[in-house]
């Protein structure tokens, strides 16, 4: 959907030669403060983190309060139980938890007198076949430094190639790190358009340049996580959307929002030569 709005915005730009953008002083209400759960476990040992913060008012700074001294326990349907320790303010971790595929995990949090629960089933792993790149020489779309007009430094498009398992619904989240810098942009996709196919997925619309090292995580997530991130992605559509709101969360508890995911991740890296 976002692309469509971007196209629409472009159309509008053509017409509205004298449009203008300005920061306005808009009065906003203060919502009741919520505990925000950002909890993820992955396959592999020590690959987990639970971050507990609190929501803030819109015009306050982005330094959110953290939720300290919580009890965080993760269990699975195999009878394993792990206690996550607070390794820094609001960040909880366990160094032995080893996520298993096709296993249901439960999280139980006791924070500030409130009980918070959730569960998620780790999907099977879908591996990355390869990461490929292609030099773009027509200048369309623009690389870094070109201001989107082309004519800048030659740039590359990077594709992640993987084979989607047939006969099941798969949901993916793709995370990208460029030269050690994590690109925090939510990128989720379901296999509706490529079920059972070897597919090529373009990473970000912009361009990469020669010398970039790109680390890609292909993360298989469950449907609830997919829906959560899909809606989170449309979260900033604001007044232009007919149905904007908080995503449906798989977290249960009073005045709590966020997401818990048991995810299967495969990582690969490429350097553009």
């Amino acid at each position: 959907m976002k692309t469509i709005y971007k196209i629409s915005a472009l159309l509008i730009l053509f017409i509205a030669l004298n449009s203008c953008e300005k920061v306005i002083d808009l009065e906003l209400k203060d919502a009741k403060q919520q505990i925000v759960v950002d909890a993820n476990i992955y396959n592999g040992v020590g690959n987990n983190v639970v971050i507990l913060t609190k929501s803030g008012n819109f015009y306050e700074s982005n330094n959110f309060e953290t939720v300290k001294n919580a009890n965080v326990i993760i269990t699975n349907n195999l009878g394993d139980s792990y206690i996550l320790n607070e390794i820094s303010d609001g960040i909880y971790y366990n160094d032995t938890l080893n996520g298993q595929f096709l296993t249901n995990y439960k999280i139980n949090i006791l924070a500030e007198g409130k009980t918070i629960t959730s569960n998620s089933t780790m999907p099977n792993l879908v591996s990355i076949d390869s990461i490929t790149y292609k030099k773009i020489d027509d200048g369309f779309g623009g690389g870094p430094g070109s201001g989107g007009q082309g004519g800048g430094e030659a740039f590359y498009k990077v594709y992640i190639n993987f084979t989607d398992p047939a006969n099941e619904s798969n949901y993916y989240r793709i995370k990208v790190t460029v030269n050690g810098q994590y690109i925090n942009e939510i990128n989720v996709v379901d296999d509706g358009l490529f079920n059972g196919l070897s597919t090529q997925f373009l990473l970000r619309m912009g361009g990469f340049v020669q010398g970039d090292t790109i680390d890609v995580d292909l993360i298989s997530i469950d449907k609830a996580n997919y829906e959560y991130y899909r809606l989170l992605n449309e979260n900033d559509m604001g007044a232009m959307s007919t149905s904007v709101g908080n995503p449906v969360s798989n977290i249960k508890g009073e005045d709590v929002i966020g997401v818990f995911g048991a995810n299967a991740v495969d990582s690969k890296s490429v350097t553009i030569e």
Binding site: L28, A31, K54, N57, G238, A239
Partner: peptide, 19 residues
């Protein structure tokens, strides 16, 4: 219209909190 009444963070990004 629907405007946010707060904000929060997930995965290092800032999101709007709606009421």
């Amino acid at each position: 219209v629907t405007f946010p009444s707060g904000k929060y963070t997930i995965d290092g990004q800032i999101f709007n909190l709606y009421t």
